[in-house]
Amino acid sequence: MNNQKAGTARRLPDTHILTIIGLMALVLIMMLFLQPGNYFSLKNARSMIYQFPEYGILAFGMMVCMIAGGIDLSLVGIMNFTGVIAALIVKHMVPAEGGPMTAAAIILAVAAAIVIGCACGAFNGFIIGYFHIPAMLVTLCGLQLYTGLAYGITGGPAINGMCDAFKAISNGSIAGIPYVLFIFIAVFLLVTFVMKSTVFGHEIYFLGSNARASRYSGINTLKVTIMTHAFSGILGGISGILITSHLNSAKSSNGSTYTLLTLLIVVLGGVHPDGGKGKVLGVTLSTILLQLIANAFGLLHMDDNAKTFVNGCMLVAALLLDVYLDKRAAKRN
């Protein structure tokens, strides 16, 4: 949002984005000394690209809800629920011998995931907006419900062994560039367009900055809340497809660390936990930054749990940065 940028008279570049770029440079420089050969290789770049889109897209969903003044803790639940549905469709409808039915079944699976994600999100939004229950509680409840649905449908064990065409969505590439990169870029452009160039996007920002003033300006707050969460749900559905295809498995407990991770991405990317502020670009950059860090950890043979630990610390640091920036802005006024 360019109007954010000009919040101060001197048109300073956004502090959050500068911080993220600085941190990226720091990680790259560190790796230049520690693991130059492995880190700066095409193979490594590709392996990174295969990983981040699924939670990057999830983070966009979290971002949209948080800008609207809420939060979406149910995203991982939506992701797994839609993943299970898609996996079931693919397992049962793709004929063993292949053929045109394969494509049709996969398209159906993708469409089902997106529609169900949208419905789950809309349900969250309706409960939040109609009953005036805090988004935190409703989506926590949604997490339980959608995870529970996924668990109930599968009965526990994962659904494995999808057809090759479906696996290719997250694992295939064209001219060395993974498909998922295109998907991520497409989603990025879509979210940017929605947030910046549509009435809906502006209404999300309005709702997050002042829900009452939104109502007094003629914005239908219930409708916008439902649409916001439905949008987030759609993004959750897309992630569901990606993770199911990526892991070749769908179950209720995939990606359990993603809630924390997406929160971290979003806060680090400059979205204010109270709503109303945040940029798509900041969130995208912070997704990439975290992938760079995660990958560096992997190459240095550090434990996965070290990553959790560091992510927790970074989340606190990002929040503290917010507090500091708020204070400084307040002083300037």
Partner: peptide
């Protein structure tokens, strides 16, 4: 530090567990 409690305790959770 007046951080939002949900996010702050989520961070503590991952620091503790990780």
């Amino acid at each position: 530090l007046k951080l939002p409690p949900l996010i702050a305790t989520l961070a503590t959770s991952s620091v503790a567990s990780g």
